[in-house]
């Protein structure tokens, strides 16, 4: 069972339906106990970084996520959810994130349309278990801020928006996708499916 973390923000319905279409059972919840019992956590999110951290904190979910991350539970952050995994963000001031991965979230700069909105090409930086049997292609992005990871090796896929933009991150059990896999056609669903597969494998190994 996978748990989609409900903290009052984000499009939870689409993610859960995408999982259901893969035959994967999941639950949308803000109950810490259910999160602790889940095989893996999905942290969605749209909106502003500071608001999201606040909503997590008032529900005590920030500490639950951090504790579960330490146990090795697979966690996937989507869009803003990926940004929340990092050290902090410049969005509307400075806000600390969950700090599961080192790096900062900054606004796009230069002569660009912001938000970065639409379908852009996903480039895999190197072979990774997440990409097994999957080819590069277009996925759907919508964001005004982007992640600058401190460790370049944590970034396993990028897209090009004048400059390389962090698109997928992974270190150990922590995963993040800046685009919306649940809104990215077949390729998005394949990546989501592969995360589920890897997460289940991790769970078996941990036991």
């Amino acid at each position: 069972m996978f748990a989609i973390i409900d903290y009052g923000m984000g499009n939870l319905h689409s993610v859960s339906k995408a999982l259901e279409r893969m035959g994967e059972s999941c639950i949308i919840t803000s109950d810490p106990q259910v999160l602790r019992e889940a095989d893996g956590l999905i942290l969605p999110g749209v909106g502003a970084f500071g608001d999201a951290m606040y909503e997590l904190a008032v529900r005590g979910l920030d500490s639950v996520i951090k504790q579960e991350a330490i146990t090795g539970k697979p966690i996937l952050g989507i869009c803003l959810g990926m940004q929340l995994l990092f050290t902090g963000s410049d969005e509307n001031g400075y806000y600390e994130g969950l700090n599961l991965l080192p790096g900062h979230v900054v606004r796009f700069s230069g002569d660009l349309l912001v938000p970065h909105m639409g379908w852009n090409w996903l480039s895999f930086k190197h072979p990774h278990p997440l990409f097994r049997g999957i080819s590069e292609g277009y996925v759907y992005f919508v964001h005004s801020y982007h992640v600058q990871a401190t460790n370049p090796e944590d970034v396993i896929a990028t897209t090009d928006y004048e400059h390389p933009v962090t698109a997928i991150v992974n270190r150990n059990n922590i995963y993040g996708m800046q685009f919306h896999p649940e809104k990215s056609g077949e390729l998005g669903l394949q990546l989501l499916h592969q995360f589920i597969r890897l997460a289940k494998k991790t769970g078996v190994e941990a036991r």
Partner: peptide, 29 residues
């Protein structure tokens, strides 16, 4: 939202933040 694997926008007759919330919560992007 359950059927589609691409994003969608909903417009028409939205007059309040509560209207927006209802639609976004239901799965509009």
């Amino acid at each position: 939202a359950a059927e589609l694997s691409i994003p969608f926008t909903v417009g028409g007759g939205i007059g309040t933040v509560e209207d927006m919330f209802q639609l976004l919560r239901a799965g509009a992007d």
